[in-house]
Design a protein around this nucleic acid. Structure first.
Lengths: 343, 343
DNA sequence: TGCTATTGCTGAATCGATTTAGTGTGAAAC
DNA sequence: GTTTCACACTAAATCGATTCAGCAATAGCA
């Protein structure tokens, strides 16, 4: 049979006090509200005895706050996002906030649904990796004074805080690293999304290639999570057609992962002849054989900055937005070492 | 400046009707409640015009239902769990439920916190991969008539529904597959958890080895997410000490992933000499070089069954619990093929 | 003694929806 | 001519917390 959870009213009746008193004690405001020590002790003892848990839905309705934040990224199972998410969760916990995670899959409709769902449930703040076309929905949140921080990508038309990395520098550094390892024909594999961060990475690649007087070799694959196999076939054909390629720079870690599979399918030994580097690190990369080099984003710093800004915004409304562009670091592993000895 | 969200009351005042009427129309009960077609049309038009979204916190307080389910697994970034989660989300969506995902990390305290957090927020149902020691908290949920379904593992003392696979058969089949491929010295790598499913897998391995008249070679690593490196060192030493091993059966996919890294560290070419199979598939396995064989759980079927049972329990209370043990399938890839040609 | 201040507590409004129990009107039934 | 009933709608209670406004009793002070 169903147990009814006791309400403040039930407790007040048992103890012969008012719900107000119980509520004050429950929220630790007993002293402040001049409740006598004896009564505080009595109420606290009873609360503990029955292991009372307040109904948070009722509390939220009254206070207008849920103490819940939402972390909305492209794909929460992606190493980069899940690491940042985990750190954010820890910081939130210490500040008595809970975090809900969800994946947008870069799908506008899905993201809009999620934003509205959570907004209707009165969550207190959003950290979002914004897909293209989401401006209006985010503006809508901002009009209701719900804190929103953009992450990984910025949207120029939105005057709200963001935390991103310097994609241009990162891509340039990575490309240079391949060049320094002796590679001459470096292909750049990216997705055909008009997102700012992707354009910056491409520009970074181009800059390094031009400075070194090499030739650009670029392939843009369709961004479409359902057609992964098709994408990989295109990549395989591209590699076969450009037999002079001696290195590949993948613009994101999921491209790399699919790409490595394609390379393996062409020839299990091909991976040992190519220089490889990926933008964004992945747990997968240090387990692969050979281990894969990557340009890693500063995960801890990003999480700390995101939460610092979020907590600030939750405390005081109408703060000036902060625009943060952080630096990443190159993680050189086996895949980007000179291969001349093996050839 | 802050926009206040309109409430039903505001709308009722503007339209000069009662909040009751607006609520009926909002919930599509207009006809049933004998509201005239004209008035329904007028209210609907206005609701659409201002793009009214009800306050779901208030609705939940009144109805006692949030239309939210929780999917609580060991690690949501694990391929197996994230796949099942995604399918569950789709089915839920079609039935007007939302799903929240979270990771227990097999940590009792963390899991308890999460269960209480969501219970206090009145979520409608739980699908849980239960860590050891969680019985009482789950019993507590059941006493409050909150539907709970166990997944991946069962807890004998709990009379609630579960969906698991036949771990014994799966492990036996996998081991036999290695034997059939000609391997003679098959090591079994597992974790030192007293969980039923792990014991069943080990028993399956043992049964196949005994039937074939081979020798058991078993290594139990400590389950400890923070000491991955240490674990891997133990594994490496184990492999070095047992130089006669020609195949390895990993009891879970995360063990395999760490194990593959260890094998690579010992010698990049070692992987091509060993037969490898893993319990639980992973996206990583078909990308690895060589591709890794695995015993895969029936992901679609599990998601469908879980949601079928959940929806049934949400509709009618006091249903008889269902105990489902499904079958998995062997996915033979490169890593478990005979290696005799290469030696 | 009379006045204000403080202490210690409570009644009732409130958040924004849902839902029960009606209310007033006009037409049909007897 | 009264009763009944369907229709079209509404007032008010309700969910379970928080919180404002206020009350009675005692203390402090002149």
């Amino acid at each position: 049979m169903k147990k009814k959870r006791p309400s403040l009213k039930d407790i007040a009746e048992v103890l012969n006090v008012s719900t107000t008193t119980v509520s004050f004690v429950l929220n630790g405001k007993g002293e402040e509200k001049k409740i006598s020590k004896e009564l505080i002790a009595k109420v606290e003892a009873y609360l503990k005895e029955i292991n009372y848990k307040p109904n948070l839905v009722a509390r939220s309705l009254r206070t207008g706050s849920t103490r819940v934040l939402v972390f909305m990224v492209e794909d929460i199972s992606n190493h980069f996002f899940s690491k940042v998410g985990r750190l954010i969760e820890d910081i939130s916990y210490k500040n008595d906030y809970r975090v809900l995670f969800c994946s947008t899959e870069n799908d506008l409709k899905r993201t809009q649904d999620l934003i509205h769902l959570f907004h209707e449930r009165q969550v207190d703040g959003f950290i979002i990796v914004p897909p293209l076309g989401i401006e209006d929905d985010i503006k809508h949140l901002m009009e209701h004074e719900t804190p929103v921080i953009l992450f990984d990508r910025k949207i120029p038309s939105l005057k709200t805080d963001y935390v991103v990395i310097n994609n241009f520098e990162g891509a340039k550094t990575s490309t240079k690293h391949l060049i320094d390892s002796g590679y001459k024909n470096i292909a750049y594999i990216t997705v055909d999304l008009d997102q700012g961060q992707m354009q910056d990475r491409e520009a970074g690649y181009r800059a390094a290639i031009e400075e070194a007087g090499l030739n650009e070799i670029t392939l843009k694959l369709p961004f479409n999570t359902t057609a992964v196999t098709e994408s990989r076939e295109k990549l395989k054909n591209f590699i076969k057609e450009h037999s002079n390629i001696d290195a590949i720079f993948f613009a994101t870690n999921y491209l790399s992962q699919s790409g490595l599979k394609g390379i393996h399918q062409i020839d299990p030994n091909l991976i040992n002849k190519l220089g490889i580097i990926s933008f964004d690190d992945s747990g997968f990369f240090e387990m692969y054989s050979p281990t894969i080099s990557a340009f890693a984003q500063p995960i801890e710093e990003m999480a700390e900055q995101l939460m610092r800004i979020m907590l600030k915004k939750l405390k005081e409304k109408d703060t000036k937005p902060e625009y943060l562009t952080l630096k990443g670091t190159l993680v050189a592993r086996e895949s980007s070492q000179p291969k001349t000895t093996k050839l």
